[in-house]
Design a protein around this nucleic acid. Sequence first.
DNA 1: AGATTAATTGGACAGATCGTAAATCCAATC
DNA 2: GATTGGATTTACGATCTGTCCAATTAATCT
Lengths: 198, 198
Amino acid sequence: MSPRTYRSARRQAAAEETRRRALAAARELLAGDAFTKITVDTVAKAADVSRQTIYNVFGAKSGLLEALFDALATQGGMDLTEAFTAPGEEAALAAFAETFCGFWASDRLVIRRLRGMAVLDPDLGRLLRERDEMRRSGLKALFSRFEGTTPENIDVIWQLTAFETYDALAEGDRDTSCVAGLITAAALAILHGSRPGA
Amino acid sequence: MSPRTYRSARRQAAAEETRRRALAAARELLAGDAFTKITVDTVAKAADVSRQTIYNVFGAKSGLLEALFDALATQGGMDLTEAFTAPGEEAALAAFAETFCGFWASDRLVIRRLRGMAVLDPDLGRLLRERDEMRRSGLKALFSRFEGTTPENIDVIWQLTAFETYDALAEGDRDTSCVAGLITAAALAILHGSRPGA
DNA sequence: AGATTAATTGGACAGATCGTAAATCCAATC
DNA sequence: GATTGGATTTACGATCTGTCCAATTAATCT
């Protein structure tokens, strides 16, 4: 009746390791050709871990996917300081677009497939919408420095910097920075090209 | 050893009817709250048809979904003649955008979910990419009437008229024609606002 | 009318997959 | 050496897919 408390760096590290391996395995499977066959069992085997462990660590398959999504976002290391410290509107937009395109490109297949699954998985869907809203907030904050940006324009640019837009424009081996350039140009045209009169 | 051939309007009509009912049931389920639970069994029950019939008619669950996707496109009645007979670039683009936005809006949830499933279903994915390519062809044909449109711009406008863009911009109860307007304006800005020099 | 066929049904089955439960093992910690 | 946290093993129930096959019903041909 006196439960001792056992803290340990070693055990904790080992647990981290299995978690890390599971996520890495899931990611690799999702990036591969047989990604439709992604299963708790296949992930466990690929991670050289028992199936039960996956459930112990992540609770459920959806938990594993959510954790993977988070891990991607985290280790993606998105740094928006360049966008926020850029001198002008154009430079800021270019930095913003390049940052996100770089992120989308870093794990294109995995992100695409996770987003597909998110449509059928409410929890994953929430997580994803949350992240997308963060991008929208970022855009809002970015444009608060400049004047005369309508909410509608922000919405459109929000979609221009979305994964789906990157994914569509990157078709046919178009370079990532090239895609970012297209997006930046489009955003700028929308911001300045709207002719209120004629 | 002399297999007679039985043709009949009545039987054929009855078969059409069960097929129609199955598709209608699938569509309704996909539009509802419990769409994650869409199952051959639930579809069959909702259509008041045996599970086996679904397999007889569509071969597999994926066949049912593909048929539904096709049915949506067909009965969506997309008519691009207005876009192709419009006097000028702006009118043509507006008609094009409105036609597609109207289609996307006609079954927004179902289309969204089908597209999500398509990520995990290679056959459905092909079908969907085919349709999207048709939109791209349409755009190319549309702009062949006008000069100076770069392939890059077509790609961007292609994505602007994609379902994902409509879906994102229609968030928060934004009117369909309003979304079409945003898309048209963005496309026009991209076409004319690209400043080649400075 | 009677034979024949098309369309559908019902039940049973194998195989995957998810998720849970309980007993056990092992190594790090007290 | 006893205890604990983490991982494993095995077993199980539930759901869903897809297949097989015998049986049923109604329309069509002769």
